[in-house]
Design a protein around this nucleic acid. Sequence first.
DNA 1: ATTTGACATTAACCTAGGTTAATTTCTATG
DNA 2: CATAGAAATTAACCTAGGTTAATGTCAAAT
Lengths: 251, 251
Amino acid sequence: MNTRAKKTNHQTPCTLCPVRQLGIFQRLPEAQVIKVQQYRSGQCVLPAKTLIYRQGEVHNHLYTLFTGWVMLYKTLSNGSRQILRYVLAGDFLSFQPDARVPMTHSAQTLTETTLCVFPRQNLMQLFNEHPEVAAQITLITARDITLSYEYLVNIGRKNARERLAFLFLEIYHRILPQLPETGTTIVFPLTQEDIADTVGLTLVHVNRTLRSLREEGLVQLSHHKLTILDYPRLVCLAGFNLQSVMNQPLL
Amino acid sequence: MNTRAKKTNHQTPCTLCPVRQLGIFQRLPEAQVIKVQQYRSGQCVLPAKTLIYRQGEVHNHLYTLFTGWVMLYKTLSNGSRQILRYVLAGDFLSFQPDARVPMTHSAQTLTETTLCVFPRQNLMQLFNEHPEVAAQITLITARDITLSYEYLVNIGRKNARERLAFLFLEIYHRILPQLPETGTTIVFPLTQEDIADTVGLTLVHVNRTLRSLREEGLVQLSHHKLTILDYPRLVCLAGFNLQSVMNQPLL
DNA sequence: ATTTGACATTAACCTAGGTTAATTTCTATG
DNA sequence: CATAGAAATTAACCTAGGTTAATGTCAAAT
Protein backbone atom coordinates (compact mmCIF):
# COMPACT_ATOMS: atom_id res chain seq x y z
CA MET A 1 0.00 0.00 0.00
CA ASN A 2 1.01 3.61 -0.30
CA THR A 3 3.00 5.85 1.96
CA ARG A 4 0.78 7.65 4.37
CA ALA A 5 -1.44 4.76 5.43
CA LYS A 6 -1.76 4.57 9.19
CA LYS A 7 -3.29 2.07 11.51
CA THR A 8 -6.04 3.52 13.64
CA ASN A 9 -5.52 3.51 17.36
CA HIS A 10 -8.99 2.68 18.56
CA GLN A 11 -10.10 -0.14 16.32
CA THR A 12 -13.80 -0.86 16.01
CA PRO A 13 -14.62 -4.37 17.23
CA CYS A 14 -16.45 -6.36 14.56
CA THR A 15 -19.43 -6.88 16.85
CA LEU A 16 -20.03 -3.15 16.94
CA CYS A 17 -19.41 -2.66 13.22
CA PRO A 18 -21.86 -0.08 11.91
CA VAL A 19 -21.58 -1.47 8.40
CA ARG A 20 -22.00 -5.05 9.44
CA GLN A 21 -25.53 -5.16 8.11
CA LEU A 22 -24.16 -4.24 4.72
CA GLY A 23 -21.22 -6.51 4.53
CA ILE A 24 -19.97 -10.00 4.95
CA PHE A 25 -21.37 -10.67 8.31
CA GLN A 26 -24.95 -9.57 8.07
CA ARG A 27 -26.42 -12.97 8.79
CA LEU A 28 -23.88 -14.18 11.27
CA PRO A 29 -24.74 -14.46 14.94
CA GLU A 30 -22.75 -12.37 17.38
CA ALA A 31 -20.58 -15.21 18.63
CA GLN A 32 -19.37 -16.02 15.15
CA VAL A 33 -18.45 -12.46 14.35
CA ILE A 34 -16.14 -12.37 17.32
CA LYS A 35 -14.31 -15.36 15.92
CA VAL A 36 -14.11 -13.82 12.49
CA GLN A 37 -12.44 -10.80 13.99
CA GLN A 38 -9.42 -12.95 14.85
CA TYR A 39 -8.66 -13.17 11.14
CA ARG A 40 -8.68 -9.46 10.71
CA SER A 41 -5.21 -8.01 10.85
CA GLY A 42 -6.30 -4.45 11.45
CA GLN A 43 -8.06 -1.32 10.36
CA CYS A 44 -6.26 1.43 8.49
CA VAL A 45 -7.07 4.97 7.41
CA LEU A 46 -6.02 6.31 4.02
CA PRO A 47 -6.22 9.88 2.73
CA ALA A 48 -8.05 10.70 -0.50
CA LYS A 49 -6.35 9.83 -3.82
CA THR A 50 -4.30 7.00 -2.31
CA LEU A 51 -3.50 3.98 -4.46
CA ILE A 52 -4.47 0.85 -2.55
CA TYR A 53 -3.15 -1.58 -5.13
CA ARG A 54 -2.09 -1.43 -8.73
CA GLN A 55 -3.07 -3.50 -11.73
CA GLY A 56 -0.29 -5.97 -12.54
CA GLU A 57 1.02 -6.27 -9.00
CA VAL A 58 0.52 -9.16 -6.62
CA HIS A 59 -1.40 -8.02 -3.56
CA ASN A 60 -1.85 -10.03 -0.42
CA HIS A 61 -4.68 -8.39 1.46
CA LEU A 62 -8.42 -8.44 1.34
CA TYR A 63 -10.42 -5.50 2.58
CA THR A 64 -13.83 -4.54 3.71
CA LEU A 65 -14.51 -0.87 3.26
CA PHE A 66 -15.51 0.68 6.55
CA THR A 67 -15.96 4.32 5.55
CA GLY A 68 -15.27 6.38 2.41
CA TRP A 69 -15.24 5.90 -1.35
CA VAL A 70 -12.89 3.78 -3.41
CA MET A 71 -12.88 3.33 -7.17
CA LEU A 72 -11.70 0.27 -9.09
CA TYR A 73 -10.35 0.89 -12.58
CA LYS A 74 -8.25 -0.44 -15.39
CA THR A 75 -5.76 1.51 -17.46
CA LEU A 76 -5.22 0.70 -21.14
CA SER A 77 -1.94 0.83 -22.99
CA ASN A 78 -3.17 3.90 -24.89
CA GLY A 79 -3.53 5.74 -21.59
CA SER A 80 -7.30 5.68 -21.31
CA ARG A 81 -9.02 4.49 -18.20
CA GLN A 82 -12.18 2.53 -17.50
CA ILE A 83 -13.66 2.79 -14.03
CA LEU A 84 -15.24 -0.52 -13.11
CA ARG A 85 -17.04 0.14 -9.87
CA TYR A 86 -17.31 2.38 -6.86
CA VAL A 87 -16.72 0.61 -3.58
CA LEU A 88 -18.80 1.93 -0.71
CA ALA A 89 -19.00 1.14 3.01
CA GLY A 90 -19.60 -2.56 3.60
CA ASP A 91 -18.33 -3.58 0.17
CA PHE A 92 -15.49 -5.90 -0.62
CA LEU A 93 -12.19 -4.97 -2.13
CA SER A 94 -9.48 -6.89 -3.96
CA PHE A 95 -11.20 -10.21 -3.91
CA GLN A 96 -9.27 -11.93 -6.66
CA PRO A 97 -9.47 -15.63 -7.28
CA ASP A 98 -5.87 -16.63 -6.88
CA ALA A 99 -3.37 -15.03 -4.54
CA ARG A 100 -0.45 -15.79 -6.86
CA VAL A 101 -2.00 -13.96 -9.78
CA PRO A 102 -1.37 -10.21 -10.10
CA MET A 103 -4.34 -7.90 -9.69
CA THR A 104 -6.15 -7.23 -12.94
CA HIS A 105 -7.27 -3.77 -11.88
CA SER A 106 -6.21 -0.89 -9.65
CA ALA A 107 -7.93 0.58 -6.62
CA GLN A 108 -7.70 4.15 -5.44
CA THR A 109 -9.45 6.12 -2.71
CA LEU A 110 -11.64 9.04 -3.74
CA THR A 111 -12.11 10.30 -0.19
CA GLU A 112 -10.49 9.59 3.13
CA THR A 113 -11.16 5.94 3.74
CA THR A 114 -11.06 3.39 6.53
CA LEU A 115 -10.39 -0.21 5.56
CA CYS A 116 -10.59 -3.44 7.53
CA VAL A 117 -7.71 -5.62 6.45
CA PHE A 118 -7.73 -9.40 6.17
CA PRO A 119 -4.55 -11.18 5.08
CA ARG A 120 -5.26 -13.42 2.15
CA GLN A 121 -3.53 -16.43 3.67
CA ASN A 122 -6.16 -16.82 6.36
CA LEU A 123 -8.96 -16.98 3.85
CA MET A 124 -9.12 -20.72 3.31
CA GLN A 125 -8.92 -21.31 7.03
CA LEU A 126 -11.75 -18.86 7.60
CA PHE A 127 -13.84 -20.65 4.99
CA ASN A 128 -13.24 -24.04 6.54
CA GLU A 129 -14.01 -22.95 10.05
CA HIS A 130 -16.94 -20.70 9.16
CA PRO A 131 -18.83 -21.93 6.13
CA GLU A 132 -21.55 -19.33 6.76
CA VAL A 133 -19.01 -16.64 6.04
CA ALA A 134 -18.05 -18.43 2.84
CA ALA A 135 -21.68 -18.57 1.80
CA GLN A 136 -22.14 -14.91 2.58
CA ILE A 137 -19.09 -13.96 0.57
CA THR A 138 -20.42 -15.99 -2.32
CA LEU A 139 -23.65 -14.03 -2.23
CA ILE A 140 -21.88 -10.69 -2.11
CA THR A 141 -19.71 -11.69 -5.04
CA ALA A 142 -22.77 -12.76 -6.98
CA ARG A 143 -24.31 -9.34 -6.40
CA ASP A 144 -21.16 -7.67 -7.61
CA ILE A 145 -21.56 -9.58 -10.86
CA THR A 146 -25.16 -8.47 -11.15
CA LEU A 147 -24.02 -4.88 -10.79
CA SER A 148 -21.27 -5.21 -13.35
CA TYR A 149 -23.79 -6.70 -15.79
CA GLU A 150 -25.92 -3.65 -15.21
CA TYR A 151 -22.91 -1.50 -16.09
CA LEU A 152 -22.39 -3.52 -19.27
CA VAL A 153 -25.92 -2.79 -20.40
CA ASN A 154 -25.48 0.84 -19.45
CA ILE A 155 -22.36 1.33 -21.55
CA GLY A 156 -23.25 -1.05 -24.35
CA ARG A 157 -26.83 -0.13 -25.10
CA LYS A 158 -27.75 3.30 -23.73
CA ASN A 159 -27.18 6.88 -24.84
CA ALA A 160 -25.36 9.51 -22.83
CA ARG A 161 -28.35 10.84 -20.86
CA GLU A 162 -29.48 7.36 -19.93
CA ARG A 163 -25.99 6.37 -18.81
CA LEU A 164 -25.63 9.32 -16.47
CA ALA A 165 -29.13 8.88 -15.08
CA PHE A 166 -28.31 5.29 -14.28
CA LEU A 167 -25.01 6.07 -12.61
CA PHE A 168 -26.58 8.72 -10.40
CA LEU A 169 -29.42 6.47 -9.31
CA GLU A 170 -27.13 3.54 -8.68
CA ILE A 171 -24.84 5.50 -6.39
CA TYR A 172 -27.73 7.35 -4.78
CA HIS A 173 -29.35 4.08 -3.77
CA ARG A 174 -26.19 2.48 -2.55
CA ILE A 175 -25.24 5.51 -0.44
CA LEU A 176 -28.66 6.22 1.01
CA PRO A 177 -28.80 3.45 3.65
CA GLN A 178 -25.55 4.77 5.11
CA LEU A 179 -26.73 8.30 5.68
CA PRO A 180 -28.25 9.38 8.98
CA GLU A 181 -31.31 10.89 7.34
CA THR A 182 -32.87 10.35 3.96
CA GLY A 183 -32.79 13.29 1.59
CA THR A 184 -32.52 13.90 -2.13
CA THR A 185 -29.00 15.35 -1.90
CA ILE A 186 -25.86 13.28 -1.39
CA VAL A 187 -22.16 14.00 -1.35
CA PHE A 188 -20.73 12.93 -4.70
CA PRO A 189 -16.93 13.00 -4.86
CA LEU A 190 -16.48 12.07 -8.55
CA THR A 191 -15.13 14.59 -11.04
CA GLN A 192 -16.72 14.87 -14.47
CA GLU A 193 -13.70 13.01 -15.82
CA ASP A 194 -14.37 10.15 -13.38
CA ILE A 195 -17.96 10.04 -14.57
CA ALA A 196 -16.79 9.97 -18.18
CA ASP A 197 -14.42 7.09 -17.51
CA THR A 198 -17.20 5.19 -15.76
CA VAL A 199 -19.85 5.41 -18.44
CA GLY A 200 -17.65 5.26 -21.53
CA LEU A 201 -17.96 8.88 -22.67
CA THR A 202 -15.62 11.87 -22.82
CA LEU A 203 -15.40 14.55 -20.18
CA VAL A 204 -16.68 17.15 -22.62
CA HIS A 205 -19.74 15.16 -23.51
CA VAL A 206 -20.45 14.43 -19.85
CA ASN A 207 -20.46 18.16 -19.25
CA ARG A 208 -22.89 18.75 -22.13
CA THR A 209 -25.13 15.95 -20.91
CA LEU A 210 -25.10 17.22 -17.33
CA ARG A 211 -26.24 20.58 -18.57
CA SER A 212 -29.08 18.96 -20.47
CA LEU A 213 -30.17 16.96 -17.42
CA ARG A 214 -29.98 20.07 -15.26
CA GLU A 215 -31.94 22.21 -17.72
CA GLU A 216 -34.67 19.60 -17.76
CA GLY A 217 -34.84 19.61 -13.99
CA LEU A 218 -33.79 15.99 -13.53
CA VAL A 219 -30.63 16.30 -11.44
CA GLN A 220 -28.36 18.98 -10.11
CA LEU A 221 -24.63 18.29 -9.73
CA SER A 222 -22.20 20.89 -8.52
CA HIS A 223 -19.47 21.23 -5.93
CA HIS A 224 -19.58 17.51 -5.37
CA LYS A 225 -23.17 17.52 -4.25
CA LEU A 226 -25.70 15.55 -6.23
CA THR A 227 -29.39 16.33 -5.95
CA ILE A 228 -32.06 14.10 -7.42
CA LEU A 229 -34.68 16.59 -8.62
CA ASP A 230 -37.14 14.34 -10.44
CA TYR A 231 -36.76 10.79 -9.23
CA PRO A 232 -39.55 9.16 -11.24
CA ARG A 233 -38.49 10.61 -14.57
CA LEU A 234 -34.88 9.73 -13.82
CA VAL A 235 -35.77 6.11 -13.07
CA CYS A 236 -37.69 5.93 -16.30
CA LEU A 237 -34.91 7.52 -18.33
CA ALA A 238 -32.27 5.24 -16.84
CA GLY A 239 -34.27 2.05 -17.10
CA PHE A 240 -33.33 1.66 -13.47
CA ASN A 241 -34.08 -1.48 -11.48
CA LEU A 242 -33.30 -1.37 -7.78
CA GLN A 243 -32.88 -5.11 -7.43
CA SER A 244 -29.87 -5.21 -9.72
CA VAL A 245 -28.00 -2.60 -7.79
CA MET A 246 -28.49 -3.16 -4.10
CA ASN A 247 -26.36 -5.45 -2.05
CA GLN A 248 -29.34 -6.59 -0.03
CA PRO A 249 -32.45 -8.60 -0.72
CA LEU A 250 -35.39 -6.21 -0.61
CA LEU A 251 -37.73 -7.20 2.16
CA MET B 1 -37.23 -24.49 -18.36
CA ASN B 2 -38.60 -24.87 -21.84
CA THR B 3 -40.56 -27.61 -23.50
CA ARG B 4 -38.27 -30.08 -25.14
CA ALA B 5 -35.77 -30.51 -22.31
CA LYS B 6 -35.12 -34.15 -21.61
CA LYS B 7 -33.20 -35.92 -18.90
CA THR B 8 -30.38 -38.05 -20.25
CA ASN B 9 -30.55 -41.74 -19.63
CA HIS B 10 -26.95 -42.52 -18.91
CA GLN B 11 -25.81 -39.80 -16.56
CA THR B 12 -22.13 -39.10 -16.17
CA PRO B 13 -20.99 -39.65 -12.58
CA CYS B 14 -19.28 -36.56 -11.18
CA THR B 15 -16.09 -38.50 -10.51
CA LEU B 16 -15.71 -39.11 -14.23
CA CYS B 17 -16.69 -35.60 -15.24
CA PRO B 18 -14.54 -34.50 -18.18
CA VAL B 19 -15.07 -30.86 -17.35
CA ARG B 20 -14.34 -31.26 -13.67
CA GLN B 21 -10.95 -29.65 -14.06
CA LEU B 22 -12.72 -26.56 -15.36
CA GLY B 23 -15.52 -26.29 -12.93
CA ILE B 24 -16.49 -26.25 -9.33
CA PHE B 25 -14.73 -29.32 -8.26
CA GLN B 26 -11.29 -28.98 -9.66
CA ARG B 27 -9.54 -29.00 -6.32
CA LEU B 28 -11.74 -31.44 -4.51
CA PRO B 29 -10.52 -34.91 -3.74
CA GLU B 30 -12.41 -37.84 -5.28
CA ALA B 31 -14.26 -38.79 -2.10
CA GLN B 32 -15.72 -35.34 -1.73
CA VAL B 33 -16.96 -35.18 -5.28
CA ILE B 34 -18.98 -38.32 -4.75
CA LYS B 35 -20.73 -36.63 -1.86
CA VAL B 36 -21.36 -33.51 -3.90
CA GLN B 37 -23.04 -35.60 -6.55
CA GLN B 38 -25.83 -36.38 -4.08
CA TYR B 39 -26.91 -32.77 -4.37
CA ARG B 40 -27.16 -32.93 -8.11
CA SER B 41 -30.66 -33.56 -9.24
CA GLY B 42 -29.77 -34.65 -12.76
CA GLN B 43 -28.33 -33.88 -16.14
CA CYS B 44 -30.45 -32.63 -18.99
CA VAL B 45 -30.01 -32.04 -22.71
CA LEU B 46 -31.46 -28.98 -24.43
CA PRO B 47 -31.64 -28.24 -28.15
CA ALA B 48 -30.18 -25.05 -29.60
CA LYS B 49 -32.10 -21.77 -29.07
CA THR B 50 -33.79 -22.97 -25.90
CA LEU B 51 -34.58 -20.46 -23.16
CA ILE B 52 -33.20 -21.79 -19.88
CA TYR B 53 -34.56 -18.99 -17.74
CA ARG B 54 -35.94 -15.55 -18.33
CA GLN B 55 -35.09 -12.21 -16.79
CA GLY B 56 -37.75 -11.25 -14.25
CA GLU B 57 -38.73 -14.79 -13.33
CA VAL B 58 -37.82 -16.66 -10.18
CA HIS B 59 -35.74 -19.68 -11.03
CA ASN B 60 -34.88 -22.46 -8.65
CA HIS B 61 -32.01 -24.32 -10.23
CA LEU B 62 -28.30 -23.89 -10.50
CA TYR B 63 -26.39 -25.40 -13.40
CA THR B 64 -22.97 -26.40 -14.46
CA LEU B 65 -22.60 -26.47 -18.20
CA PHE B 66 -21.41 -29.88 -19.33
CA THR B 67 -21.31 -29.40 -23.11
CA GLY B 68 -22.44 -26.70 -25.54
CA TRP B 69 -22.75 -22.92 -25.62
CA VAL B 70 -25.13 -20.75 -23.62
CA MET B 71 -25.45 -16.98 -23.72
CA LEU B 72 -26.54 -14.71 -20.88
CA TYR B 73 -28.25 -11.48 -21.87
CA LYS B 74 -30.48 -8.66 -20.78
CA THR B 75 -33.29 -7.11 -22.77
CA LEU B 76 -34.09 -3.41 -22.45
CA SER B 77 -37.53 -1.86 -22.54
CA ASN B 78 -36.71 -0.35 -25.96
CA GLY B 79 -36.19 -3.84 -27.33
CA SER B 80 -32.41 -3.81 -27.57
CA ARG B 81 -30.33 -6.58 -26.10
CA GLN B 82 -27.00 -6.73 -24.33
CA ILE B 83 -25.23 -10.07 -24.24
CA LEU B 84 -23.33 -10.36 -20.99
CA ARG B 85 -21.29 -13.50 -21.32
CA TYR B 86 -20.94 -16.79 -23.14
CA VAL B 87 -21.11 -19.79 -20.85
CA LEU B 88 -18.88 -22.68 -21.94
CA ALA B 89 -18.29 -26.19 -20.61
CA GLY B 90 -17.39 -26.15 -16.93
CA ASP B 91 -18.88 -22.72 -16.32
CA PHE B 92 -21.60 -21.80 -13.92
CA LEU B 93 -25.09 -20.70 -14.74
CA SER B 94 -27.80 -18.84 -12.87
CA PHE B 95 -25.84 -18.26 -9.72
CA GLN B 96 -27.88 -15.46 -8.23
CA PRO B 97 -27.49 -14.31 -4.68
CA ASP B 98 -30.97 -14.79 -3.36
CA ALA B 99 -33.36 -17.51 -4.40
CA ARG B 100 -36.41 -15.34 -3.77
CA VAL B 101 -35.26 -12.62 -6.11
CA PRO B 102 -36.16 -12.92 -9.80
CA MET B 103 -33.33 -13.45 -12.26
CA THR B 104 -31.85 -10.21 -13.55
CA HIS B 105 -30.89 -11.69 -16.92
CA SER B 106 -31.97 -14.39 -19.34
CA ALA B 107 -30.10 -17.48 -20.50
CA GLN B 108 -30.50 -19.20 -23.83
CA THR B 109 -28.64 -22.05 -25.53
CA LEU B 110 -26.79 -21.32 -28.76
CA THR B 111 -26.09 -24.97 -29.53
CA GLU B 112 -27.36 -28.27 -28.19
CA THR B 113 -26.37 -28.24 -24.56
CA THR B 114 -26.02 -30.61 -21.62
CA LEU B 115 -26.54 -29.16 -18.16
CA CYS B 116 -25.92 -30.57 -14.71
CA VAL B 117 -28.74 -29.42 -12.48
CA PHE B 118 -28.49 -28.55 -8.78
CA PRO B 119 -31.62 -27.48 -6.93
CA ARG B 120 -31.05 -24.19 -5.19
CA GLN B 121 -32.50 -25.34 -1.88
CA ASN B 122 -29.62 -27.69 -1.28
CA LEU B 123 -27.08 -24.97 -1.71
CA MET B 124 -26.78 -23.79 1.88
CA GLN B 125 -26.58 -27.37 3.06
CA LEU B 126 -23.86 -28.10 0.53
CA PHE B 127 -21.92 -25.07 1.71
CA ASN B 128 -22.15 -26.09 5.33
CA GLU B 129 -21.10 -29.63 4.74
CA HIS B 130 -18.44 -28.85 2.15
CA PRO B 131 -16.81 -25.48 2.71
CA GLU B 132 -14.20 -26.33 0.04
CA VAL B 133 -16.96 -26.23 -2.55
CA ALA B 134 -18.03 -22.84 -1.27
CA ALA B 135 -14.49 -21.58 -1.56
CA GLN B 136 -14.22 -22.95 -5.05
CA ILE B 137 -17.48 -21.33 -6.08
CA THR B 138 -16.24 -18.05 -4.70
CA LEU B 139 -13.12 -18.29 -6.83
CA ILE B 140 -15.10 -19.07 -9.97
CA THR B 141 -17.42 -16.17 -9.28
CA ALA B 142 -14.45 -13.89 -8.74
CA ARG B 143 -13.11 -14.93 -12.16
CA ASP B 144 -16.48 -14.22 -13.72
CA ILE B 145 -16.21 -10.72 -12.30
CA THR B 146 -12.75 -10.32 -13.74
CA LEU B 147 -14.09 -11.31 -17.14
CA SER B 148 -17.01 -8.93 -16.94
CA TYR B 149 -14.61 -6.12 -16.04
CA GLU B 150 -12.67 -7.00 -19.15
CA TYR B 151 -15.90 -6.68 -21.12
CA LEU B 152 -16.56 -3.29 -19.56
CA VAL B 153 -13.20 -2.02 -20.74
CA ASN B 154 -13.83 -3.53 -24.14
CA ILE B 155 -17.14 -1.77 -24.64
CA GLY B 156 -16.34 1.39 -22.78
CA ARG B 157 -12.91 2.27 -24.10
CA LYS B 158 -12.13 0.51 -27.38
CA ASN B 159 -13.08 1.01 -31.02
CA ALA B 160 -14.90 -1.50 -33.17
CA ARG B 161 -11.86 -3.40 -34.47
CA GLU B 162 -10.40 -3.73 -31.00
CA ARG B 163 -13.69 -4.94 -29.57
CA LEU B 164 -14.06 -7.71 -32.10
CA ALA B 165 -10.42 -8.75 -31.79
CA PHE B 166 -10.89 -9.06 -28.05
CA LEU B 167 -14.09 -11.07 -28.29
CA PHE B 168 -12.54 -13.53 -30.72
CA LEU B 169 -9.44 -14.05 -28.60
CA GLU B 170 -11.44 -14.42 -25.43
CA ILE B 171 -13.66 -17.12 -26.82
CA TYR B 172 -10.80 -18.79 -28.67
CA HIS B 173 -8.84 -19.16 -25.45
CA ARG B 174 -11.74 -20.37 -23.42
CA ILE B 175 -12.74 -22.97 -26.01
CA LEU B 176 -9.27 -24.23 -26.79
CA PRO B 177 -8.68 -26.40 -23.69
CA GLN B 178 -11.87 -28.28 -24.47
CA LEU B 179 -10.93 -29.29 -27.99
CA PRO B 180 -9.20 -32.60 -28.73
CA GLU B 181 -6.44 -30.98 -30.73
CA THR B 182 -5.15 -27.44 -30.83
CA GLY B 183 -5.66 -25.55 -34.08
CA THR B 184 -6.32 -22.01 -35.19
CA THR B 185 -9.90 -22.72 -36.28
CA ILE B 186 -12.80 -23.16 -33.89
CA VAL B 187 -16.54 -23.58 -34.26
CA PHE B 188 -18.16 -20.24 -33.55
CA PRO B 189 -21.95 -20.38 -33.29
CA LEU B 190 -22.65 -16.64 -32.87
CA THR B 191 -24.40 -14.67 -35.59
CA GLN B 192 -23.16 -11.20 -36.48
CA GLU B 193 -26.13 -9.83 -34.60
CA ASP B 194 -25.03 -11.75 -31.48
CA ILE B 195 -21.56 -10.28 -31.86
CA ALA B 196 -23.03 -6.81 -32.19
CA ASP B 197 -25.12 -7.23 -29.05
CA THR B 198 -22.06 -8.45 -27.18
CA VAL B 199 -19.67 -5.63 -28.00
CA GLY B 200 -22.13 -2.73 -28.11
CA LEU B 201 -22.21 -2.12 -31.87
CA THR B 202 -24.78 -2.60 -34.63
CA LEU B 203 -24.96 -5.61 -36.86
CA VAL B 204 -24.10 -3.51 -39.90
CA HIS B 205 -20.99 -2.10 -38.33
CA VAL B 206 -19.90 -5.53 -37.14
CA ASN B 207 -20.11 -6.68 -40.75
CA ARG B 208 -18.00 -3.74 -41.94
CA THR B 209 -15.46 -4.36 -39.21
CA LEU B 210 -15.27 -8.08 -39.95
CA ARG B 211 -14.48 -7.27 -43.55
CA SER B 212 -11.73 -4.92 -42.47
CA LEU B 213 -10.21 -7.57 -40.16
CA ARG B 214 -10.45 -10.17 -42.92
CA GLU B 215 -8.88 -7.89 -45.53
CA GLU B 216 -5.97 -7.27 -43.21
CA GLY B 217 -5.48 -10.97 -42.70
CA LEU B 218 -6.22 -10.96 -38.97
CA VAL B 219 -9.21 -13.30 -38.70
CA GLN B 220 -11.55 -15.18 -40.97
CA LEU B 221 -15.14 -15.76 -39.90
CA SER B 222 -17.67 -17.53 -42.08
CA HIS B 223 -20.18 -20.33 -41.79
CA HIS B 224 -19.74 -20.34 -38.05
CA LYS B 225 -16.06 -21.19 -38.24
CA LEU B 226 -13.57 -18.73 -36.80
CA THR B 227 -9.94 -18.84 -37.86
CA ILE B 228 -7.26 -16.84 -36.10
CA LEU B 229 -4.95 -15.83 -38.95
CA ASP B 230 -2.50 -13.51 -37.22
CA TYR B 231 -2.48 -14.21 -33.51
CA PRO B 232 0.26 -11.75 -32.43
CA ARG B 233 -1.23 -8.78 -34.24
CA LEU B 234 -4.67 -9.67 -32.95
CA VAL B 235 -3.45 -9.81 -29.36
CA CYS B 236 -1.81 -6.44 -29.81
CA LEU B 237 -4.88 -4.90 -31.41
CA ALA B 238 -7.20 -6.23 -28.73
CA GLY B 239 -4.99 -5.35 -25.80
CA PHE B 240 -5.56 -8.93 -24.80
CA ASN B 241 -4.40 -10.38 -21.49
CA LEU B 242 -4.86 -14.10 -20.99
CA GLN B 243 -4.97 -13.90 -17.22
CA SER B 244 -8.15 -11.87 -17.18
CA VAL B 245 -10.04 -14.29 -19.32
CA MET B 246 -9.20 -17.84 -18.28
CA ASN B 247 -10.96 -19.66 -15.53
CA GLN B 248 -7.73 -21.23 -14.33
CA PRO B 249 -4.58 -19.99 -12.69
CA LEU B 250 -1.81 -20.20 -15.27
CA LEU B 251 0.81 -22.59 -14.05
C1' DA C 1 -35.95 -28.68 -57.01
C1' DT C 2 -38.15 -24.96 -54.89
C1' DT C 3 -39.61 -22.21 -51.38
C1' DT C 4 -38.91 -19.79 -47.13
C1' DG C 5 -36.81 -17.48 -43.57
C1' DA C 6 -32.70 -16.43 -41.33
C1' DC C 7 -28.41 -14.43 -41.97
C1' DA C 8 -24.79 -11.71 -44.41
C1' DT C 9 -23.40 -7.91 -47.32
C1' DT C 10 -23.23 -3.36 -49.23
C1' DA C 11 -24.20 1.46 -50.19
C1' DA C 12 -25.86 6.19 -49.04
C1' DC C 13 -26.68 9.06 -45.76
C1' DC C 14 -26.86 10.96 -40.96
C1' DT C 15 -26.01 12.00 -35.97
C1' DA C 16 -24.34 11.24 -31.32
C1' DG C 17 -20.58 11.83 -29.41
C1' DG C 18 -15.40 12.77 -29.97
C1' DT C 19 -11.55 16.30 -30.54
C1' DT C 20 -9.24 20.44 -29.84
C1' DA C 21 -8.64 24.35 -27.72
C1' DA C 22 -9.72 28.52 -25.29
C1' DT C 23 -11.81 30.44 -21.09
C1' DT C 24 -13.67 30.41 -16.60
C1' DT C 25 -14.40 28.87 -12.03
C1' DC C 26 -12.90 26.43 -7.90
C1' DT C 27 -9.90 25.10 -4.18
C1' DA C 28 -5.95 24.20 -1.72
C1' DT C 29 -1.68 26.30 -0.11
C1' DG C 30 1.58 29.55 1.39
C1' DC D 1 -5.40 37.37 -0.07
C1' DA D 2 -2.58 35.88 -3.88
C1' DT D 3 -1.51 32.20 -6.73
C1' DA D 4 -1.27 27.86 -9.01
C1' DG D 5 -3.13 23.73 -10.36
C1' DA D 6 -7.20 21.18 -10.87
C1' DA D 7 -11.75 21.02 -12.47
C1' DA D 8 -15.68 22.84 -15.19
C1' DT D 9 -17.61 25.06 -19.18
C1' DT D 10 -18.27 26.30 -23.90
C1' DA D 11 -17.73 26.63 -28.88
C1' DA D 12 -16.39 24.91 -33.54
C1' DC D 13 -15.55 21.31 -36.02
C1' DC D 14 -15.13 16.34 -37.25
C1' DT D 15 -15.60 11.22 -37.50
C1' DA D 16 -16.79 6.59 -35.96
C1' DG D 17 -20.41 4.30 -35.93
C1' DG D 18 -25.68 4.32 -36.50
C1' DT D 19 -29.80 4.07 -39.74
C1' DT D 20 -32.32 2.59 -43.55
C1' DA D 21 -32.98 -0.09 -47.10
C1' DA D 22 -31.96 -3.01 -50.92
C1' DT D 23 -29.85 -7.30 -52.36
C1' DG D 24 -27.45 -11.60 -51.97
C1' DT D 25 -26.55 -16.24 -49.90
C1' DC D 26 -27.39 -20.35 -47.47
C1' DA D 27 -29.70 -24.22 -45.27
C1' DA D 28 -33.75 -26.41 -43.77
C1' DA D 29 -38.21 -28.01 -45.10
C1' DT D 30 -41.54 -29.39 -48.31
